[in-house]
Amino acid sequence: MYQEQILQINGVRLWTAVQGTGLPMVLCHGGPGGYDYLSSVADMVSDLCQVVRYDQRGSGRSQPIGPYDVSTFVDDLEGLRKHFNFERWIVGGHSWGAGLALAYAVRFPARTVAVLHIAGTGIDDRWHDEYRENRLNALIESEREEYQRLRTQREDAKGAKGERILDRLRTLSRKTDVFDPNCVDNLPSFDEYPISNAANEMVGADWKRYTTDSKFQQSVYNLPMHVLFLHGACDPRPGHFIETLASKLFYGTFVSIPESGHYFWVEKPDEVKAALRQFVVDYVINDTV
């Protein structure tokens, strides 16, 4: 089964794709402001799960209508669940989408059977400084100098010039998201649709407020369902924050994928597939602890 459609959800038209049969699952792409690129991940479990993918509001094939904040994005997810008439579902996401999955599980624990936190950044805002350092160290000297120069120019750049600077910064960052440089060309390209910088900036700022809220942090620690934290061992986004977060959850499981970066299913598809399927079978289908 595979079906793409545009749905009217929570006052906005959202592009969706559904594939597979079995337990309901949703996968949230990263960004914010990007669009879906998780078909390969969905393929890994589509014989076990009915997987929903979608472009978040303001992104890709979905309608560019705000507001752009975490609460609205959670409402959109819940609207999708209701549309598909799923009583409960596995909520997963990659990068920023992993944070969105956590926010949904906190607000709707009774509707969340499990969470997949795939290469996310967790809820400790200190990760970003270390990430910047790791990213710079992964670039060659000329690229490092260019990156730092563009970061400075971006502060005052407006309009088309600012967009060009952001595009170049993203291109340089992509090079640091792999362990094997030969895999860079296999990463999601984001060439088909423009990145929504408005959604990126506004949702990103709102997510930072979430991650510095002690009540939200405690709610994540108290999640009553199993949470799988998958992280690439060579992702410049530091994995030790994620491992620490997993250890604070009663039902948290941390799995590091060796010799891989941010899009680890591109570099280590067999290992990622095995980890995802084992989690779904052990902690959802068999409901073991």
Rank of each mutant, 00 (worst) to 15 (best):
Met1Pro: 10
Tyr2Asp: 13
Gln5Gly: 05
Ile9His: 07
Gly11Leu: 09
Arg13Gln: 13
Thr21Ser: 10
Leu23Pro: 00
Asp36Arg: 00
Ser39Pro: 02
Ala42Ser: 10
Val45Lys: 01
Leu48Pro: 01
Leu48Arg: 06
Leu48Gly: 03
Leu48Met: 09
Asp55Lys: 07
Ser59Cys: 15
Ser62Trp: 07
Ser62Gly: 09
Ser62Asn: 10
Gln63Lys: 08
Ile65Asp: 08
Gly66Tyr: 04
Gly66Trp: 08
Pro67Ile: 06
Tyr68Ala: 05
Val70Asn: 01
Val70Met: 12
Ser71Met: 10
Thr72His: 04
Phe73Gly: 00
Leu77Asn: 07
Glu78Tyr: 12
Glu78Asn: 13
Arg81Ser: 06
Phe84Trp: 11
Trp89Lys: 05
Ile90Gly: 03
His94Gln: 09
Ser95Val: 02
Gly97Pro: 02
Leu102Gln: 08
Leu102Ile: 12
Phe108Thr: 01
Val115Arg: 09
His117Asn: 15
His128Pro: 04
His128Tyr: 15
Asp129Leu: 14
Tyr131Asn: 12
Asn134Val: 09
Ala138Gly: 10
Ile140Glu: 14
Gln148Ala: 10
Thr152Phe: 13
Thr152Ile: 15
Gln153Ala: 05
Asp156Gln: 14
Ala157Glu: 02
Ala157Ser: 02
Arg164Ala: 04
Asp167Thr: 08
Arg170Phe: 10
Thr176Pro: 06
Phe179Ser: 13
Asp185Trp: 07
Pro194Arg: 03
Ile195Pro: 00
Asn197His: 11
Asn197Asp: 05
Ala199Ser: 02
Glu201Asn: 12
Asp206Thr: 03
Trp207Tyr: 11
Asp213Tyr: 07
Pro224Lys: 12
Pro224Thr: 07
His226Lys: 07
Val227Asp: 02
Leu228Thr: 05
Phe229Met: 13
Gly232Arg: 11
Gly232Cys: 15
Cys234Leu: 08
Pro236Asn: 11
Ala246Phe: 04
Ser247Gln: 14
Ile257Glu: 05
Ser260Asp: 08
His262Met: 09
Tyr263Asn: 03
Trp265Asp: 00
Pro269His: 03
Glu271Ile: 10
Ala274Val: 05
Tyr283Pro: 03
Val289Lys: 15
